[in-house]
């Protein structure tokens, strides 16, 4: 982080006085800038960077909760924690569960959000803000609070099943079924996140020039054709951006099962994040760190691939 090495050696023409003045100006700039950056950098280093690196280092040791008091008892174990992870059926299952949430949840959430955004952008003016506010409300509300009412709605003899029963559908006991707990989580996830995506998509839709749509209209293109030939291609960057965001969030899938099912029934909703959190609770700090790093790498890789796609297509 040394400034002198990166500073340009001499000015053009080699006028020493001018370049000296420039260097001292640059040094002054550096001092001022670092003064402004200091409070952030200290807090950020202490509470984000160092934990991030220690977690990485920890994952190659046998650190447990008991070792907090006696750090010298900790041994370097190489990749043992990672090997153990990939031999654990519970961890492998949590990978599949997280994958299920991502693969089904992302298209579902994006689909709903896109439909809402297109409907809100279809030229209606009255109640537009009210609708938008309504669809966005689940985003701002606490998951803990929302979970209370969702657990209530989803119980065996709760309101949802009463409605479904009225329609002649025999519904499952959502949260206690190994098959249906995950669809319930995905539904809850879509409900909580569709508002954010809707707002992003609305912003994207508003950048589509009205002349284009009008021109297509004059050429006799129907609404479906206009949507697939004009709206969708022009929305591609926005859609991809939304997909990247959602995949970063959905890969961290944790809060829904934590408040709704505690990872059950029979680990059916135990995600990778949840697995790591549980191991932390058991005091297996190193093992938990390894699991969380597997997740971090997955998130980094996926978003890198998607961002590359985003750049290539635009």
């Amino acid at each position: 982080m040394s400034g002198r090495r990166t500073a340009r050696p001499a000015g053009d023409g080699g006028r020493a006085a001018a370049s000296g003045a420039r260097r001292s100006l640059r040094r002054r700039q550096s001092v001022i800038a670092w003064t402004f950056a200091l409070p952030f950098v200290v807090l950020f280093a202490w509470f984000t960077l160092i934990p991030l690196l220690s977690s990485f280092a920890m994952s190659f040791t046998d650190f447990r909760s008991a070792d907090v008091q006696s750090p010298f008892a900790v041994d370097f174990v190489g990749l043992d924690q990672y090997v153990k992870l990939f031999q654990s059926t519970q961890f492998l299952r949590s990978l599949r569960t997280t994958g299920y949430f991502v693969v089904v949840g992302i298209p579902l959430t994006m689909g709903i959000a896109l439909i809402l955004a297109v409907a809100l952008n279809s030229g209606i003016t009255r109640f537009r803000v009210a609708f938008r506010t309504g669809f966005y409300t689940p985003v701002v509300t606490s998951i803990v609070a929302v979970a209370v009412v969702w657990r209530f709605i989803l119980q065996q003899d709760g309101p949802l099943n009463a409605i479904l029963g009225g329609l002649g559908i025999s519904a499952p006991d959502w949260l206690n079924s190994t098959t249906w707990a995950m669809p319930a989580m995905i539904g809850l996830g879509a409900w909580r996140n569709m508002g954010t995506l809707m707002v992003i998509f609305l912003a994207g839709l508003q950048t589509i020039p009205a002349e284009l749509t009008e021109a297509a209209l004059t050429d006799g293109a129907g609404p479906v054709r206009r949507f697939t030939r004009i709206t969708l291609p022009l929305m591609r960057p926005t859609l991809l951006f939304g997909a990247v965001l959602l995949s970063v969030w959905y890969l961290q899938f944790f809060e829904e099962p934590y408040v709704m099912t505690q990872g059950g029934p029979l680990d059916a909703t135990l995600s990778v994040s949840y697995f790591a959190f549980k191991q932390f609770g058991f005091g297996n700090y190193a093992y938990a760190s390894a699991a969380s790093y597997v997740l971090f790498v997955a998130i980094a890789l996926l978003s890198m691939v998607m961002f590359r796609g985003l750049r290539a297509r635009t």
Partner: peptide
């Protein structure tokens, strides 16, 4: 992009 659980333990 860092998931919350990564820094949780340290």
């Amino acid at each position: 992009m860092v998931p919350g659980v990564v820094t949780f333990v340290p």
